[in-house]
Structures are given as structure tokens and as C-alpha cells.
Design a protein around this nucleic acid. Structure first.
Length: 288
DNA sequence: CACCAGGTAATTC
DNA sequence: GAATTACATGGT
């Protein structure tokens, strides 16, 4: 673990607020100076944007440039993606202008699974609080700039944690799900390393769905937001259902809109970029 | 004091 | 099988 710094001199499609506030991640917090500090994959990092320059500094195990390139998916050309998606229609084009600096992160698979199990029927401030308490209690402390940060606990660090312990941390009814899924992964009933090797997204999805507390929505978020990175996946939550109904279906009662219908439209309009389109639409609708 | 929050699983029809 | 309901917790 060593202190490192890396500066990116040109960066199209990179806005801190778009990336960190679009609902894909829970451990990045805005600082008073406008920068963001976060903990991911055992690293503590502060990201500051100044004009067209992005400065990354923090404590990192490997080479910071490589770590950042991977995590922020910097080798993917979002300008081309935005150009393609903008052609779909004016609504999508508007949403892209609104969230022009969004990038979908390559987050740790295990952490993403647990985080989105916690997200079920929950709100973002509370989700963040629960994840912080989990990390504080069971993760490793990393000191940086006079503050302590806590890594997200590994499955092994949770091996002896009981359902009641989770309940005390304020997890609510998700306590059992977290316990069961942790042990399914520890026992390799679902082998996370194997998931990376499976090219068929449908099969990976089926495997994720066997985990406790993982339903269609959570599985899709994991496929899209983790380093499984399946950009064709289109998670449907209340916001996405709302915006898709408003734009394309126009049913009187959005809660009654058929999920298959939304998936079909998303596939037809956005194809293998559906997940990215979902993020622009979600961010646009939630912020507006 | 109802109602909601990036749903899921169990139950019921 | 599709539709309904319980599930903790903290904030309006």
C-alpha cells in the first residue's frame, strides 16, 4: 500500500457528480472542495476535476494508473457510445446531454452483490449508512491524511457474523439474505471466479438469481455495475419503469406496465448498449 | 401518523 | 403461473 498520484490530462465523458451520483455506487462522498473520496477494492482514493484535467491521489496497492484505468473503464470510448445512443430519439439525446459525464464503473463483484441486496426496498442514504457500518465493523482500516477509512469486508471477514449481528447494524429484514448469500459464496455454491469465465450473460444471471436476496433487479444491477460489465443488461426499477412508460408506453398506471414489454423496447432501441442508456435515463429522471 | 425507499420471497388464488 | 403481502428501518 503506497501513496500515489495520477493525472489524466484529457477526459471526455468524465464528470464526478454524474459518475458518483447516478446510483451505481455507494461509497464515494463529496468533499468540501468539490472532489470525491471513496474506497474501492482495498484502495482509498480522492478524485478532483479541474477543467479538463482529472487528478487521482490516494493509497493504492497496485499501480494507480492501471487501477484507475480499470475501475473507471477509461479505455472505453463513451463519445462513440453517446453518439450512437443519441440517434435513438430526442428524449434519449436529452438525457445524454444531462448526464454527459457518466461512466459505468468496474466495481468489485462481491461488494456489488451485497450492496444491491441491501438496496432492496431501501433508500440511498440508508443504503450508504448500512454499508459504512458493515465496513467499519468488519473491514480493514486504512489511514490516509489523518482519517481512517474502512475497506468493504471480504466474505471471509463475515464468516462468523450472525444474523443478529447484522440486525444490530440496522440491516432490517435483509439480515438473513446477507447471511445466507455470504455463506453460499463461502461454500462455493456460487463460485464468483467461475462467473467471470462464463460468456453467456443469461447463465451468469441464472447463477446470481440462486443467491438469497437476489431477484431480477438486483441480478441485473450486479451484471451491469460490477466488473462482470454486461452493458447490454437493462435493470428495471421504479424510476426506469416510470421513464420508459412516459416515453414509449404511456400507460395510465405505470405500476401495471409489463416488464417484458419494457425489456423488449429497451432491446430494440438500445441493443447491446441498453445498460448505459438505462443510466442516462435513470439519472435524468431522478435528478430532474 | 401514514407513506415511501433502485425488491425479494413466501403465500395465495 | 400471475397477483398479493410481509418484511425493518429511518426519513418526510
Amino acid at each position: 500500500m503506497k501513496e500515489q498520484k495520477y493525472v489524466l490530462n484529457s477526459c471526455d465523458s468524465f464528470e464526478l457528480s454524474h459518475i458518483f451520483d447516478c446510483g451505481q455506487c455507494f461509497r464515494w462522498n463529496k468533499q468540501e472542495d468539490g472532489s470525491y473520496t471513496g474506497i474501492f477494492k482495498g484502495n482509498v482514493l480522492n478524485v478532483q476535476k479541474d477543467g479538463n484535467k482529472v487528478e487521482f491521489k490516494g493509497i493504492c496497492d497496485g499501480n494507480l494508473q492501471e487501477v484507475v484505468t480499470e475501475y473507471f473503464d477509461l479505455n472505453r470510448d463513451y463519445e462513440i457510445i453517446k453518439k450512437t445512443l443519441s440517434k435513438v430519439d430526442t428524449n434519449v439525446s436529452t438525457s445524454i446531454k444531462y448526464g454527459s459525464g457518466i461512466r459505468i464503473l468496474n466495481q468489485d463483484l462481491w461488494e456489488t452483490i451485497i450492496s444491491f441486496i441491501i438496496s432492496a426496498n431501501n433508500n440511498i442514504p440508508r443504503i450508504k449508512g448500512i454499508i459504512e457500518r458493515l465496513s467499519l465493523n468488519y473491514g480493514d482500516a486504512i489511514e490516509w491524511n489523518g482519517s481512517k477509512y474502512y475497506t468493504f469486508p471480504t466474505p471471509e471477514q463475515l464468516i462468523d457474523v450472525k444474523v443478529e449481528d447484522y440486525r444490530k447494524l440496522g440491516l432490517g429484514f435483509r439480515d438473513v439474505r446477507l447471511y445466507e448469500t455470504t455463506h453460499m459464496i463461502l461454500d462455493k455454491k456460487v463460485d464468483l471466479q467461475e462467473l467471470y469465465k462464463e460468456p453467456d450473460t443469461v447463465k451468469v444471471r441464472e447463477k446470481l438469481l440462486t443467491l438469497s436476496g437476489v431477484g431480477p433487479k438486483v441480478a441485473d444491477c450486479v451484471l451491469l455495475f460490477s466488473d462482470l460489465k454486461r452493458l447490454e443488461v437493462f435493470p428495471i426499477d421504479v424510476w426506469v419503469r416510470r421513464v420508459m412508460n412516459e416515453l414509449y408506453i404511456k400507460n395510465e398506471d405505470e405500476t401495471k406496465v409489463n416488464k417484458r414489454q419494457i425489456e423488449k423496447i429497451a432491446q430494440e432501441k438500445f441493443g447491446n448498449l441498453a445498460g448505459i442508456a438505462q443510466q442516462y435515463l435513470f439519472y435524468w429522471k431522478r435528478e430532474a
